[in-house]
Amino acid sequence: MIGDGKDGEIYKVADDKVVKYFFKEETHQRELEAMQIGQTSSIMPRLYEFGDNYIVMEFVKGISLARHMKRQGQIDEDMTKKILFVLDEFKRLGFTRWDTEVRHMLMNEEGEFKVIDHKRAFTSDSPVPTKLFKGMKKFGLTGEFLEHVKNLNPELHYAWKKLK
C-alpha cells in the first residue's frame, strides 16, 4: 500500500502502475468517468484497466506540488505557467471543478504535472481555485503565484480578484 484515505486505498502493483481500490461504488464511478474523459490530456494519469470498485492507472514518479513548494520555498513563472495549463485543461475537458489540492498535483520526472483524485470533477463548481490558493497559502506563496498570474494572464488575475 502506498496511500489511503477516506475514499479508498492505493497499491503499487508494478513499477509503472497502481491500483486504486474504492470503498464506495459511487466514488469509483465518479472518478472513473473523469479518468476516462481525461485520457486526451497530458495532465491525467493513463488509465489501464478498471473493474468493480478499482482502477488501474499510471504510477506517477515524482513529487507533489506541496512538497516542491516546501522544498523550494518559491514558485517561479515557469511553474506558474504549468499550473495555469492544468487549470485550462480542467476547463477544456469539461470539468466543472477547475481546482485541485496542491498534494494532488504530482510533478513527474520530466517536470510536467499529472493530477490525481478527480472524484469531484463534475460535482463541484468553483470559478476560483480556492483549494489551490489554500495550499499555497500554507507555504506563504499565494502572493508570489498571483503576481506571476498577473504578468502571464492579467484577465484571469482580474477575474479571480473580482470573484474571491
Rank of each mutant, 00 (worst) to 15 (best):
K17E: 13
D99S: 10
I43N: 03
K119N: 14
E147A: 14
S41A: 09
I83S: 05
E109M: 14
G62V: 08
H68T: 10
R30A: 13
K61N: 09
F133W: 05
A66S: 12
E109Q: 15
V13A: 04
P129L: 01
W98H: 15
R30Y: 11
F22K: 00
N53A: 08
P154R: 01
A159H: 06
P45V: 00
G94D: 07
Y11E: 06
N53D: 06
K137M: 11
G140I: 05
K161W: 11
M105H: 03
I2N: 03
V115R: 02
G5C: 10
F50C: 04
L106I: 15
L152P: 08
I75G: 05
D88T: 13
V13R: 03
T80R: 06
F133T: 01
V19D: 01
G143A: 12
T80N: 08
K81C: 14
V60C: 00
K119D: 14
R97D: 15
I75L: 13
V18N: 03
L65W: 09
E9L: 10
D125V: 08
N153S: 15
V56D: 00
E144T: 10
K82F: 12
H68R: 10
G140S: 06
D99I: 07
E155L: 06
F22Q: 01
F85P: 05
R71T: 14
E77N: 08
W98E: 13
H28N: 04
Q74L: 15
M44Y: 07
D99L: 07
K17Y: 08
D117Y: 10
N153R: 14
K138S: 12
S64Y: 12
K17R: 15
V102G: 04
G5Y: 05
S41N: 04
E155Q: 09
L141H: 03
M57D: 00
K17N: 10
W98D: 11
S64N: 08
F90M: 11
T123C: 04
E49T: 02
F50P: 00
Y21M: 03
P45F: 00
P45Y: 00
K161I: 12
E110L: 08
R30I: 09
K17F: 12
S126Q: 11
V19R: 04
S126V: 13
H28K: 02
F50L: 01
N108C: 10
K134P: 01
V60Q: 00
L65Y: 10
E144R: 04
D125P: 01
D52K: 14
M136H: 02
E110G: 03
E144M: 10
K12A: 05
H157R: 09
K20L: 03
K114Q: 07
M105N: 06
D15P: 06
D76P: 06
F22H: 01
T40K: 13
K137D: 14
R97M: 13
H104A: 10
